[in-house]
């Protein structure tokens, strides 16, 4: 027990937390943009898997990390575009088509994995690099500020997304389309185009989030690598009240408890492992149940737009 309360353990938990948060951040920030424009994308998990696979494959064959990220972004963006086609143009039920997109991504990434790699391989991914100045602070430097570029980029997305949503015309359009597409349309905002854009960006970020696992955190690809991260990310968007900063807090809380339960087990506190692994999910359910932030919900979420309807 006393081992749990040491500074070393605490710094270890924080280090794990930051690393664990990364894929959730990419996926959840992308999902936030989509949902603010009224699009629910439950297929994030499938897009992450495709991003993870494609990114890994490019790094495995060419060795280019940048190429891997770009390929993952492209794969995710294409799936996002498909999602937009289905839910904006064809006005499909978003919950259902999202599940379809998930199964598509899961199946295709598994198939491609078998055809091209066959077995689990590893690559050398993004190394951990300390941030200038911050990284040399004793204690928290190595723990909070020594990570891979993929991690820093994920955290940089939060203020960027908040800025875009709240301070730019484009962000205003996204919010207008998500809250009142009829009015936005009447004012000349291209509803379909805005939703296409947010779905594509959401897919792109999900793809990069997947790659943050396969070429940065784990440096391997295996079937179903993401193991449910995409779905948790969707839940965290609700949790975060559709605001990037709120989403960040949700992601950090979830990652903190996930990291903490690992350390609880390592330090041998005597908590049954079955209970320990449940903690992050129990917490998420609790938080979802008690948080009541209906004010943040885009009014037109999941509703396809038909002019004049």
């Amino acid at each position: 027990m006393e081992q749990l309360l040491t500074i070393g353990t605490l710094l270890g938990v924080l280090h794990s937390m930051i690393r664990l948060a990364t894929p959730y951040l990419y996926a959840a920030i992308g999902e936030t943009l989509g949902q603010r424009s009224g699009l629910l994308n439950l297929g994030v998990e499938g897009m992450m898997l495709m991003g993870a696979y494609v990114g890994f494959y490019v790094v495995f064959t060419t060795g280019s990390l940048l190429g891997g990220v770009l390929a993952a972004a492209l794969a995710g963006a294409l799936l996002g575009l498909m999602m937009a086609l289905v839910s904006v143009t064809f006005r499909a039920e978003q919950g259902i088509s999202g599940i379809g997109m998930y199964l598509f991504g899961l199946g295709l990434s598994s198939l491609l994995f078998k055809l091209t790699l066959g077995t689990v391989q590893s690559v050398s991914g993004f190394p951990e690099v300390p941030l200038p100045l911050l990284g040399s602070i004793p204690g928290i430097g190595p723990s909070l500020f020594t990570h891979s570029v993929m991690v820093y980029a994920a955290f940089a997305l939060v203020p960027l997304a908040a800025y875009v949503l709240n301070r730019t015309t484009w962000g205003l359009n996204i919010r207008a389309v998500g809250d009142n597409p009829q009015a936005a349309d009447a004012l000349g905002v291209p509803v379909a185009a805005v939703r296409y854009a947010t779905a594509t960006i959401g897919g792109l970020l999900a793809g990069v989030g997947g790659a943050s696992l396969s070429i940065s955190a784990l440096n391997i690809f295996q079937e179903n690598l993401t193991g449910g991260i995409g779905f948790i990310a969707v839940a965290l968007v609700y949790f975060g009240g559709w605001r990037p900063v709120g989403v960040l807090l949700g992601v950090l809380l979830f990652s903190f408890v996930s990291a903490l339960q690992l350390w609880l087990q390592v330090t041998g506190v005597g908590l049954p492992s079955d209970l320990a692994v449940m903690l992050p999910y129990l917490l998420t359910i609790l938080a979802l149940a008690v948080s009541n932030r209906r004010a943040g919900q885009p009014s037109a979420l999941t509703k396809p737009f038909t002019r004049g309807a």
């Binding site: 794990s16 784990l218 690992l262 087990q265």
Partner: peptide, 25 residues
């Protein structure tokens, strides 16, 4: 001998984080 159970047979990402935690400990 420090043990971490991930609660899953196939969660590769969690097993990786568990390994990082073991090493850090």
């Amino acid at each position: 001998v420090n043990k971490i159970y991930t609660g899953s047979f196939g969660d590769t990402a969690k097993a990786a984080e568990a390994a990082s935690t073991e090493i850090a400990a």
